[in-house]
């Protein structure tokens, strides 16, 4: 399961970040394996998603959210 599949207010633990050109961007924002992630908001029409990770709110598009693999 990836972060894009979370439903609103649902939490999970990050297992890994998929390797890509922007994996470093995830890491530097503190999106790290082992952290809790919770889906707060979704913009309409398949727009960006807002996640809560350790008191920080991070906005990602769905194409970025699928790069966050979650522990089931």
């Amino acid at each position: 399961m990836t972060a894009a599949q979370l439903s609103l207010q649902q939490s999970a633990t990050i297992e890994s970040i998929q390797e890509s050109d922007i994996s470093i961007n995830f890491l530097e924002l503190g999106i790290l394996p082992g952290k809790e992630i919770k889906l707060l908001k979704k913009a309409p029409f398949g727009g960006p998603m807002a996640f809560l990770i350790e008191e920080n709110i991070i906005a990602l598009r769905q194409q970025e959210a699928i790069m966050i693999n979650l522990k089931s």
């Binding site: 050109d21 922007i22 961007n25 995830f26 924002l29 960006p48 807002a50 920080n56 709110i57 991070i58 906005a59 990602l60 598009r61 194409q63 970025e64």
Partner: peptide, 8 residues
Amino acid sequence: KSYLLTEL
């Protein structure tokens, strides 16, 4: 690549 990865 265009991406959105930003803090609110």
